[in-house]
Design a protein around this nucleic acid. Structure first.
Length: 922
DNA sequence: CAGAGCACCTAA
DNA sequence: TGAGTTAGGTGCTCTG
């Protein structure tokens, strides 16, 4: 009856949901906090600068919108004239692609037909945009030369392959006459397997354009006959490398690095630095020292509103776009310098932002596109722009035949087209995405970033803003948007404030989470373009590093056909001694376990001895053989050493650095380095991947299993009563790279002391850089099961705990309703902090009785898919009963160990569970 | 009603 | 045509 009582709020958020009044959908209009914030921008700017002729908060009649006088901030700063014969051009490259074009006279490379041209987009220190066309770089791959091959046969080979490729083409739209540009002999060695540094002759086959690589590779695999050689199949090497990556690796360019074009080596062709350069002339600066800086990139965030029909999700062929809000900020600054709303119909002014009103939707769309091209952002952000705003705008513009709309990139004449893309991985499952090409601009959809990098309970902009910024959206229900639009200029103003905030929040989040900095650092560390980090998986990052390392030793990467096979054995989880521990439990961890194993044992493609090899130079637990680093040091260990030592450097620099901005960059870097090191192992084990090598991955886990076992033995053998210690140490649990040890001491500080000593002593039994570290003490500690435990975490001080640490329990899982998570969290606090298990039980009983007596709002229960589905199947009261029952059983189950915490073990039956599940009469 | 199989999510 | 790994707890459904 009275279950409407709302005693909740957002999970973990407590009652602070609606601090800002404005609860209902009332239309009363006191200025919101956000409006005050907006007006502050205005005041600050009025003080800082003369009125530039921009009427900050006026409603501007559409007319001379794009004149420099009216909107001086929209355009980029004027670009100083450049004299290629005496000036160099330096810019930070932020995006990179290629296109097929005609050769430019004076530039290296093929002269006739279409040639591939790399295009780098970037920004100079003074904020001028650069489009740099790099000429003369052609795609290539390798095949081993057949035995007895001599230079005399090169032209014969080239001719045969060329005609085979031509014959293979179904149509020849581009009228290609030469497909194979060149064939050369080079001395190379396959990186797969150690074969006594057997450097062989390889044919380096250069093709006219990237898309000819795949057919050439296929034809060579199928078999080619040339000269005196019999028909035979040629395995290919590096024929599956993206052209952009190929270029970057070969010219030592990494994502987001600074590029210098020396004087006399480039030519200017168009406005704001559109230049041509030969590929060997550009200088790429490693991201060190001064070259770590970031150019003043323009970041545009936007949001659109549509007038949908009642209860129907807006459809672009029917429902109009009524508002578009945009905010533009320079990377590194704290406030947006452009704040604009384009509205359909009139709209009352908003202090601190510019309102542009249109009577025709077509004109609104057209003008916004023009606005975007004028502002010329390097990065475009927003919330779900990739799958909603951009597709909607493009489809709407198509429906209204606004033909000049879909040109949103930085290259004149290239139409932005919507495409469906299916992205699938074990990690993320199947994900349907849309893509829009926008040459030279990086689309940084904040929703996509959050889905990739953060595990959250809810990904709505409101929930995310609350979680990270303790701030929320302006309060406007979706259902009233159309009514607001059909009202008057005041109601449309309210909508505009809402829309502006939705454009502003992504910008704030981007800043708070340091997305741009962190992603740039990742691009620099791994060497891939920024856009790859959002559109591609983990593998390409390792490939990029592997190729760079391999090139130094003339090693080439084979193309392997990918087929899934048997899984291999992973890590050991030590059988837990379940229970409640009211004594300190020391935790020892191997730091970077898998990377350090690969380094210590020189595990790599290049050091693997193929089965049947006679030499036995060092065994792995799985019976695979790898040569010692004294024979040949592996590429993967080299990559890992570079990553981890760079991380150490970044961390020491971080400690010294005082400038907060540089600190952020360094922190982003050390994080990127850590993640990169950890993904190398996964790459070798990815059976459907670019270069899987299960010998490496299973040896890594094999060593890991041996090590955790040995660690347990060592600790338990040394810390004994007979060895002079207070008690016999016991490893009560361990997972993959850690052991939890009950040392039998009474205080945290004793546990810390012995823990540190034990870690050091155990480390001495392993090959460097393998290292066991003392990490923390849990006191008290509740061990529920494998991968499920909780405890008070001591590491910085022996007197006070840093936090309550929960692993695998309902409190950290997203497939439980908040009620359960909150309940368990409170119970754990009672047990661990108050040391009052009875209090925990009482609390649980209270909550459950509230639940059974319908005293709890049903909406709190509906969170998991299963529960949602059930709620849909049952109606009204019945749904409540069903949900209550399910939640109740979860509560009983998870609270049970808490009630019997000191004596309970897994062999005991669970009387409460029996009671809970058998008692179905509510 | 046990248990296999599956979905989901987490630990490392 | 692109996708990091295995171990493992828990709840639900289906089946003999």
């Amino acid at each position: 009856m009275d279950y409407k009582k709302r005693n909740g709020g957002p999970f973990m958020g407590g009652a602070s949901q609606a601090k800002r009044g404005k609860t209902g959908g009332e239309w009363e209009d006191s200025p919101s906090q956000f409006e005050e914030e907006l007006s502050m921008f205005d005041e600050a700017e009025m003080e800082a600068e003369e009125m530039e002729g921009q009427a900050g908060h006026d409603v501007i009649p559409v007319g001379d919108l794009f004149s420099a006088d009216l909107n001086p901030r929209w355009r980029r700063p004027n670009a100083p004239t450049l004299d290629p014969s005496s000036d160099k051009l330096v810019f930070q490259q932020i995006d990179l692609d290629y296109y097929l074009g005609s050769a430019v006279a004076g530039m290296p490379g093929q002269l006739q037909g279409k040639v591939p041209i790399i295009r780098m987009f970037g920004v100079t220190d003074s904020g001028n945009s650069v489009c740099c066309h790099v000429h003369g770089f052609a795609p290539y791959f390798f095949v081993p030369a057949p035995s007895g091959f001599k230079a005399d046969y090169l032209s014969e080979f080239q001719k045969e392959l060329n005609s085979a490729v031509l014959k293979d083409m179904r149509s020849n739209k581009d009228n290609i006459s030469i497909t194979v540009l060149a064939v050369d002999i080079t001395r190379k060695e396959s990186m797969y397997g150690y074969h006594g540094k057997r450097i062989l002759d390889f044919l380096r086959i250069t093709m006219a354009m990237p898309r000819l690589i795949a057919p050439a590779k296929r034809l060579l695999e199928q078999g080619l006959k040339f000269g005196p050689f019999p028909l035979q199949s040629y395995p290919s090497y590096e024929a599956n490398i993206d052209f952009e990556i190929r270029f970057m690796v070969d010219s030592d360019v990494v994502g987001c690095c600074w590029i210098e074009l020396p004087k006399g080596k480039y030519r200017v062709s168009l406005c704001q630095y559109e230049v041509d350069v030969g590929w060997t002339d550009l200088i790429s600066h490693p991201a060190e020292g001064d070259w770590q800086r970031i150019a003043p990139l323009r970041v545009l965030s936007f949001d659109i509103e549509c007038a949908g029909r009642k209860g129907i999700f807006p459809e672009p062929d029917k429902d109009p776009v009524i508002q578009i809000a945009s905010m533009v900020q320079r990377q590194g600054e704290t406030e947006p310098f452009i704040r604009t709303v384009f509205t359909l119909q009139s709209c009352a002014s908003i202090v601190g932002s510019q309102i542009l009103c249109f009577t025709q939707e077509r004109q609104l769309l057209q003008s916004w596109a023009e606005f975007l091209r004028t502002v010329d952002p390097d990065i475009i952000t927003g919330y779900n722009i990739q799958n909603f705003d951009f597709p909607y705008l493009l489809n709407r513009a198509a429906a209204l035949k606004v033909n000049l709309f879909p040109y949103l990139g930085r290259v004149r004449g290239i139409k932005s087209v919507l495409k469906d893309l299916n992205f699938q991985s074990k990690q993320m499952g199947r994900r349907e995405n849309k893509t829009i090409n926008m040459e030279g601009r990086v689309q940084f959809d904040l929703l996509q970033v959050l889905l990739r990098d953060y595990k959250l309970r809810s990904y709505t902009l409101n929930a995310v803003s609350f979680h990270f910024l303790q701030e929320q959206k302006e309060d406007v229900q979706h259902s009233i948007i159309t009514d607001l639009q059909n009202g008057n200029e005041q109601t449309r103003r309210r909508l505009a404030v809402y829309c502006l905030k939705d454009a502003y929040l992504p910008l704030r989040l981007l800043q708070k989470l340091m997305c741009v900095i962190n992603y740039m650092e990742m691009a620099r560390v791994t060497g891939v373009p920024l856009t790859y980090l959002l559109s591609r998986g983990q593998q390409i990052k390792v490939v990029s590093q592997l190729l760079r390392q391999a090139m130094k030793q003339d090693l080439v990467m084979p193309v392997v056909k990918t087929e899934g096979g048997e899984d291999y054995t992973g890590a050991t989880v030590i059988e837990p001694e379940k229970g409640y521990y009211s004594v300190p439990i020391a935790t020892l961890d191997f730091s970077s376990l898998y990377p350090s194993i690969m380094m210590a044992h020189n595990l790599c493609y290049t050091t693997l001895l193929q089965k049947g090899s006679v030499e036995k130079l060092g065994w792995t637990p799985t019976g695979d053989l790898f040569v010692k680093s004294t024979v040949r040091k592996g590429l993967l260990p080299e990559i890992l050493e570079n990553l981890l030592s760079a991380r150490k450097r970044a961390k020491t620099e971080l400690k010294k650095e005082t400038d907060p901005f540089k600190k952020q960059v360094l922190d982003g870097r050390q994080l990127a380095l850590k993640i990169s090191a950890n993904s190398v192992y996964g790459f070798t084990g990815a059976q459907v991947g670019k270069l899987p090598c299960l010998e490496i991955s299973q040896s890594v886990t094999g060593f890991g299993r041996q090590m955790i076992e040995q660690t347990k033995q060592l600790v338990e053998s040394r810390y004994t009563i007979s060895g002079g210690y207070q008690a016999d140490a016991k490893v009560i649990y361990g997972d993959t790279d850690s052991v939890m040890v009950k040392l039998g001491v009474a205080t945290v500080s004793e546990a810390m002391e012995i823990g540190k000593e034990a870690a050091e002593w155990v480390s001495s039994h392993f090959t460097p850089p393998i290292k066991l570290e003392f990490e923390k003490v849990y006191y008290p500690y509740l061990l529920i099961n494998k991968k499920r435990y909780a405890g008070l975490y001591f590491s910085s001080s022996a007197d006070t705990h840093d936090k309550m640490d929960c692993k695998g329990i309902e409190t950290v899982r997203r497939d439980n309703c908040p009620l359960v998570a909150n309940l368990i969290n409170t119970c754990l606090q009672r047990i661990l902090i108050d040391r009052d298990p009875k209090g925990a039980v009482n609390h649980a009983k209270e909550v459950i009785s509230d639940l059974l007596c319908n005293r709890i709002d049903i909406s709190q229960l509906v969170i998991t898919k299963e529960l949602t589905r059930t709620a849909q199947e049952y109606a009204g009261k019945q749904a409540h009963v069903e949900l209550a029952e399910r939640t109740r059983s979860m509560c009983w189950r998870t609270t049970f160990p808490l009630t019997h915490n000191t004596t309970w073990n897994s062999s005991c039956p669970n009387p409460l569970r029996l009671e809970a599940t058998s008692n179905n009469s509510l």
